[in-house]
């Protein structure tokens, strides 16, 4: 989409601009860029902290998938809920979490979202509707359906998003969950972030249909495919699915085609994909570069504005890391806390 196309004569001004430019104020569009940078730099900061030995265990980075998390969350309110995955930092931030408390969690500190008990793979922020990342592939999908059942029973206006990867579509939980959601017309949206691989196993080597969205037909719900690296496309699909869900029309399966720039986790030798493939996605299809260029093209932001966002984000990240470093570790005597609900 170029400016020339956007200003076609016979149409009212802006009529054929991409969806988000018709839907959102310039302010919100800039905020979206801010958040995408926040996700990117958060993960770069986490990666660096890991390399420096400040974070242990492992982590799964979503660098390259930011438009997907952001686009899906654009039409959501704080009351709406999500279930997330092992690759869930982006979802958490897009839904509204504070990066300082996320860093604190990654550093294993009591000020972290899970008080140092969960770490990257279990990051959550219930206050902004994130019911949690998940260490179990597909584990969050039925939980989202349950949350949607609550929303329906309580007659709330809430919708629930379940994020999962392409690999998860081969778990039984995915199929059972989609069936029930459709059967009971629940306000849930299944968002498959298809980054081409489940660990080392490509879609072609794991999945009997070419698109995860094709599975929707089996459960009588719409299956929508979007370019997950184009923010507007993702947001538009999310809007329509949210509308359907709030109107009581039932679930939607959105397949957001994207790519992870980094290895699966910290122990990936990257033997299953080519350098060229990775390079291509990094240089030609980076979702942040793409969105930023679009914003500049449409005159919504200029270079100085972009710089200002980057700097603000860098400061937020640095402050977050400092907060995490300075925070206290849990005490051993509290080892068995939070296993059961404390009744005092």
């Amino acid at each position: 989409m170029t400016v020339a196309q956007a200003k076609t004569k016979d149409l009212p001004a802006g009529a054929n601009l991409p969806f988000i430019y018709r839907e959102y104020s310039a302010e919100r569009l800039k905020q979206a860029l801010h958040k995408m940078y926040l996700i990117r730099q958060f993960e770069e900061g986490a990666e660096e902290s890991y390399t420096r030995g400040l974070i242990h265990g492992t982590m799964h980075l979503s660098i390259g998938q930011e438009a997907s998390a952001m686009g899906i969350c654009m039409p959501l309110t704080n009351d709406d809920q999500i279930t997330s995955t092992h690759r869930g930092h982006g979802h958490c931030i897009a839904k509204g979490a504070e990066v300082s408390k996320m860093f604190a969690e990654f550093f294993g500190k009591t000020t972290g979202y899970c008080r140092g008990r969960g770490g990257s793979m279990h990051i959550a922020d219930v206050t902004t509707g994130n019911l949690g990342a998940n260490g179990i592939v597909g584990g969050g999908i039925p939980i989202a359906v349950g949350a949607a059942l609550t929303a329906k029973r309580l007659k709330s206006d809430r919708v629930v998003i379940s994020f999962f990867g392409d690999g998860a579509n081969n778990e039984g939980a995915f199929h059972e969950a989609l069936n029930m959601a459709s059967l009971w017309k629940l306000p849930v949206i299944f968002v498959c972030e298809n980054n081409g691989y489940g660990m080392s196993t490509s879609m072609a080597r794991s999945t009997a249909v070419p698109n995860v969205a094709d599975r929707a037909a089996a459960y009588a719900m719409p299956g929508v495919i979007v370019d997950g690296n184009v923010l507007s496309e993702v947001a538009e699909a999310s809007h329509e699915a949210v509308r359907r869900a709030r109107a009581g029309e039932g679930p939607t399966l959105i397949e957001s085609k994207t790519y992870r720039h980094r290895g699966h986790s910290k122990s990936d030798r990257n033997r299953y994909r080519t350098k060229e493939e990775i390079e291509d996605w990094m240089t030609n299809r980076d979702p942040i570069v793409r969105y930023e260029n679009e914003l500049m093209e449409f005159g919504i932001i200029d270079q100085a504005g972009v710089e200002a966002i980057r700097e603000a984000v860098a400061k937020e990240i640095a402050d977050g890391i400092e907060f995490a470093k300075a925070s206290p570790s849990p005490e051993i005597r509290n080892l068995e806390r939070y296993v059961y609900t404390e009744t005092v």
């Binding site: 294993g108 140092g116 008990r117 279990h122 570790s329 849990p330 080892l335 068995e336």
Partner: peptide, 16 residues
């Protein structure tokens, strides 16, 4: 093992 899920924090994890 202690009567708890395995915690993330490395010191807690060892203590488990």
């Amino acid at each position: 093992g202690a009567e708890t899920p395995i915690p993330y924090n490395p010191e807690l994890e060892k203590a488990t």
